[in-house]
Design a protein around this nucleic acid. Structure first.
Lengths: 348, 348
DNA sequence: GATGATGACTGATACGGTTCAATGAATCGG
DNA sequence: CCGATTCATTGAACCGTATCAGTCATCATC
């Protein structure tokens, strides 16, 4: 039942009347091989349908052409966009990408890194859920480069690519203040996520700097998901009108879209009763029930840049060249849409 | 610069004063090893920080614990949901998943399959962009099982998991007819995608069966994306009011959400001027500008079931047990929301 | 106390490639 | 015409693990 007709280089060599070394050369250094021989070998490969065994190659080489990527929420289009950017670049460099979803679970995160280590992947793109780098140090000791994605280097020991979330939070906060809001809220969590902390802190800075009589309510959520947004909207809508915030900054667009749904369900109008701004500017933000204002991150660029830094580090290690870690920080951009449009006083 | 401090089983064996065979036994058949020895070996493993080399193991075993998955559009939440379902099950079975994005490009699709073949993955979950199975046959000859995802078996030679798209299309068409529409449209493409053909055909069947004076306009798009929807909406909106369809069935939710955006931009009201129904019922459908009616597919179940069939086939092949290919067909479900709500005649 | 039987461990081999020193043939300059 | 150089090819060693036929000691059995 198991055909197991595994053809190996030896079979090809036999058929082509050459040694295995020559077959290998045909693949890896074609110029060292006579044209006639090369064609004979190629023909034999075709005929037998031989395909190189990547495990064997990798075992010998001690290094692999596959890249591991850990994201914290594959259901979030932000991460698939980042992954697309990374994959695009890596595909061109002949690497293949393994995407693992930690689902914001530290245990799974570790397991995924363990598996990548066992596979001796060529490198790892890592979007972490916290700041610990111990696990990463071990990977690097084994010679596996790691680039930290979506989190700009608290540690100088790794390359990292991210966005200035403090600035992003400030943009969002300032925007809401500019629209004349005085009762603000921030929705997002858990605060173990640096992204959440930074975005919130940025908003707080905007508020402090503005001075004046501004209140800022913080609503913490267990995850950054649609559902979390929906349920937070319920909480907020239940507040007495006089205390209820008139504008909300959500830590990402998923939460923002959830809030939108929740508010509409609760009978609140957006932006008239409550304005919303999100973060990431995923493609669905513009298509939401009320087109969603957001703070845009260059998602695919983040992926591409991360991959580029990773490849560079891998190649430096291969060639023994020195390598300086780099921390790339993109600047976020405010995208104002209807969900934060100033309330029309002239209603009638 | 390259530390290369690669510790192998031999190092562990030396430190623990045993042979490499024993170290291997500690891992794979712990019961064949004396307790004291086992602990000594474990201690040595800890101390050296040894991690098994998956390539070597795999080379020896001839088979790997990693699964390749090919999807045609990773930006479509439908596929990430399917992938989540698959990954969830496979993670539990100690497999890791490699997701590759063919981006609806036949060339990339082939390349991804080539790479999986070279890696001798344990199996492949394949969401194809057309019906050709030649490439798959070769994989299977090499002993790599393939399960076809999101496309129920035209071929009995493979397991497959999908949804009855003909029934789904019919549900959508019937729903629009039930709302009293007579000028319908179908938007989607390319028609090389079986999903597109089936959904459209299903709608046509509903129309034929209903009889009466019903028109059905077909608008073809190059891909199933938000952008395709937006631009199709432009075309449709440009039609004279008397010819313009009053209800549109989009081949998937991305297109539907794009249409929605496009119609709103063009000044048409949904559902008053034109009703929309999508397909997939991705999470964002409910959160769209107007909550989107859709035909729901059990996305995560599709992934889980595919993975289950794949694992079963892999294990059957390993144990030499016979295996019967299975074609699982889920039934889609109509989800009616506001985007197809009957027009209120009593407007004033 | 000789005989198996059992249990714990060893050592060699194989997996499928890459790499590199060595070999032999052909070419070249003088 | 010969030594030197270049070119094409070979063959063996090696990567890190799993497996399996043996080896050796221990123990129960009669």
């Amino acid at each position: 039942m198991t055909p197991k007709n595994s053809v190996s280089m030896r079979d090809v060599a036999t058929l082509a009347q050459v040694s295995v070394g020559t077959v290998s050369n045909v693949l890896n250094s074609p110029d060292r091989v006579a044209e006639a021989t090369r064609q004979r070998v190629q023909a034999a490969i075709e005929k037998l349908g031989w395909v190189p065994n990547e495990s064997a190659r990798q075992l010998r080489a001690g290094r692999s052409r596959s890249i591991g990527m850990v994201v914290m929420d594959i259901a979030n289009p932000f991460f698939t966009d980042v992954a697309r950017g990374a994959e695009e670049l890596l595909y061109g460099e002949q690497y293949s990408v393994q995407i693992g979803n930690s689902d914001q679970d530290p245990g799974r995160e570790i397991t995924l890194l363990d598996r990548f280590e066992q596979q001796r992947v060529g490198g790892v793109l890592f979007a972490p859920i916290d700041d610990s780098v111990e696990r990463l140090v071990r990977l690097r000791q084994r010679g596996i480069p790691v680039v930290i994605v979506d989190r700009v280097g608290s540690s100088v020991d790794f390359c990292s690519v991210g966005v200035d979330d403090l600035a992003g939070g400030r943009l969002a906060g300032q925007h809401l203040l500019d629209q004349g809001h005085h009762r603000l809220a921030f929705v997002g969590g858990p605060s173990s996520l640096a992204q959440v902390r930074d975005r919130r802190r940025g908003m707080e800075l905007a508020v402090e700097q503005a001075g004046g009589d501004v209140s800022l309510l913080a609503v913490s959520t267990p995850t950054l998901s649609l559902e979390a947004g929906v349920s937070s909207a319920g909480e907020i809508a239940a507040l007495p009108t006089g205390e209820r915030p008139t504008a909300v900054f959500a830590a990402n667009d998923l939460v923002a879209i959830g809030l939108l749904q929740g508010f509409v369900t609760a009978g609140l109008r957006v932006p008239d009763d409550v304005a919303i701004i999100g973060y990431d500017d995923i493609a669905f933000a513009a298509a939401a029930a009320v087109p969603l204002s957001s703070v845009r991150q260059p998602r695919e660029d983040i992926g591409r840049k991360s991959a580029e830094l990773l490849v560079r580090e891998i190649e430096a290690a291969d060639s023994g060249a020195p390598h300086r870690h780099e921390a790339v920080r993109f600047t976020p951009q405010l995208i104002a849409r209807r969900s934060t449009q100033p309330r029309k006083r002239a209603k009638g």
